[in-house]
Design a protein around this nucleic acid. Structure first.
Length: 483
DNA sequence: TGAAATGTTGGGGCG
DNA sequence: ACGCCCCAACATTTC
């Protein structure tokens, strides 16, 4: 009987588990291994929240494995060393893992493959970053043509989703595992329970059934006060469902949709999954975007980087209720509605003129779904510095965004409770309340809730000036170098 | 997956 | 009855 290692990274599931399936097919016994890698846990912008989520998911996965005659081997250390050690201890002839395309992951895997028989199978996206490229082999840098090419590739059949194996033979060996030593907070009222069953359940609740929520996605997805999105991002991030499963589920839903709006809704959600793969592809082909703006003409913006204003943003006390609600939702739950992400990001970059990389880092420290490709893509989009980015002059007005997407102020009242009694007409601009009204509703602006950290109208004109100047300078520099 | 500034139109008040 | 003005409502342009 041959033994193989199933090296688990960001694919913490047993359903549609191509790497595990390959290991089971090629060898009889399988050692499921997760390596806690100090290069990740001690990296800049590492996230304690995400670490807890991960460790809970590992504990849950260990339980699932035990029901199938296996168990999770958890070790700490450099992956290359740990893998060599476990291979020696178990006599494993091969290591199977789902591919991972981040720059660090590719370096790490290349180093492992240099000395060990590593076989990468499948990946966190449906299509490999090299599979969806232009006719001349170069990558797409604009979303829409990428999306069309993505959809023109062969898509999985619903019956191609692999069921979770019922038995996973483990070699007759004693292998040390640190899984029992995890010291986890037991917070029963978690918003994102970290286990595969929860992920599968959420996908089902969102995309299956007679009238699945995905059929209303177009109408509700931007509403901050309603539960219109799938809230699957942490689970996709850690592969507790596969991208293939999500795509198959939404395709099936789309076929079943009888009316146009339902079909369009399913299509819109699929497009969001494709944005995820678009940004993975961008990072794969342009790893430099983690260091600097994709667009060369916007690399020298004179950011203000006011540390006190940045702190006000981080802590949800900018004085703009919709911004503060988003930031507090993030701090409290490790997740933020996507519309809120755009609003708070626009505010940080375009109202406060803080370097988008500061915001990117903060999000990485707090988001359960924090992923370098998607997070970087989103921030560069907002800053107008990225691929297919928002134009520099697109600046969100936090009051109008609030009025549009949280019309009754319910999202604000949930996360900024000090404003609970502010009337709807003032909930998005509480600083306009008269002294009398402030006294009536028990909120003195400047004492109980902050004065706006900056005037939006002034900030908007300031940013337009700065970006315009920056583009002019870039054009002149190009001329200067040429002539 | 914006918002503000500017332009146009047309109804109604008014002398 | 007519012309003038105001301005809301909508459209277009600009950032």
């Amino acid at each position: 009987m041959q033994t193989a290692i199933w090296w688990i990274r960001r694919d913490l599931r047993l359903t549609d588990q191509t790497a595990l399936t390959a290991a089971l097919q090629e060898a009889g016994d399988v050692v499921p291994l997760f390596v806690i890698d100090p290069a990740l846990t001690e990296a800049k912008n590492a996230s304690p929240k995400r670490q807890v989520f991960l460790q809970q998911a590992l504990q849950s996965l260990d339980g699932e494995l035990r029901q199938r005659g296996s168990r999770l081997i958890l070790r700490r250390g450099s992956p290359a060393e740990v893998l060599a050690q476990v291979a020696a201890e178990s006599g494993a002839a091969a290591i199977y893992a789902e591919a991972d395309y981040s720059p660090y992951a590719r370096r790490r895997d290349a180093a492992v493959a240099h000395s060990l028989p590593l076989k990468l199978v499948g990946g966190p996206s449906l299509h490999h970053p090299e599979a969806v490229v232009k006719a001349d082999g170069t990558p797409y840098t604009v979303y829409t043509p990428y999306m069309r090419a993505w959809k023109s590739q062969p898509l999985p059949r619903p019956d191609s989703i692999l069921p979770a194996p019922s038995r996973i033979p483990f070699p007759a060996l004693e292998l040390v595992s640190e899984i029992g030593e995890l010291n986890l907070p037991t917070d029963a009222a978690q918003i994102f329970p970290a286990n595969e069953a929860e992920a599968q359940h959420r996908l089902m609740a969102f995309a299956e059934g007679a009238t699945p929520r995905v059929f209303q996605y177009v109408d509700l997805r931007n509403r901050l006060d309603l539960n219109g999105t799938s809230q699957l991002s942490p689970y996709l991030r850690f592969g507790m469902i596969s991208a293939r499963q999500a795509v198959v589920a939404v395709q099936v839903a789309e076929v079943r949709a009888t009316e146009g709006l339902a079909r369009k809704s399913a299509e819109t959600w699929l497009n969001e999954l494709i944005w995820r793969e678009f940004y993975m592809t961008i990072l794969y082909h342009f790893p430099d975007v983690l260091q600097q703006s994709f667009r060369a003409d916007l690399r020298q913006i004179p950011w203000r980087n006011d540390v006190q204003e940045f702190a006000a943003w981080c802590e949800g006390r900018t004085g703009y209720p919709i911004v503060d609600a988003g930031m507090r939702q993030l701090a409290h739950t490790g997740w933020m509605h996507n519309r809120a992400r755009m609003i708070v990001a626009s505010f940080l970059v375009k109202d406060l003129l803080v370097d988008w990389r500061w915001g990117e880092g903060f999000f990485m420290e707090h988001l359960l779904d924090g992923d370098p490709a998607a997070n970087n893509g989103g921030w560069q989009w907002t800053a107008g510095t990225g691929t297919d980015a928002a134009p520099y002059f697109r600046i969100f007005n936090p009051v109008l965004q609030g009025e549009k997407f949280d019309p009754a102020g319910e999202y604000i009242r949930q996360w900024v409770p000090e404003l609970t009694n502010v009337p709807d007409e003032r909930i998005h601009k509480p600083w306009e309340m008269t002294e009398l009204l402030q006294a009536e509703v028990g909120v003195k602006i400047g004492r109980d809730y902050p004065q706006p950290v900056v005037d939006h109208g002034m900030a908007r004109r300031r940013t337009l000036d700065v970006y315009q100047m920056e583009k002019m300078v870039a054009v002149q520099n190009r001329r200067g170098r040429r002539g």
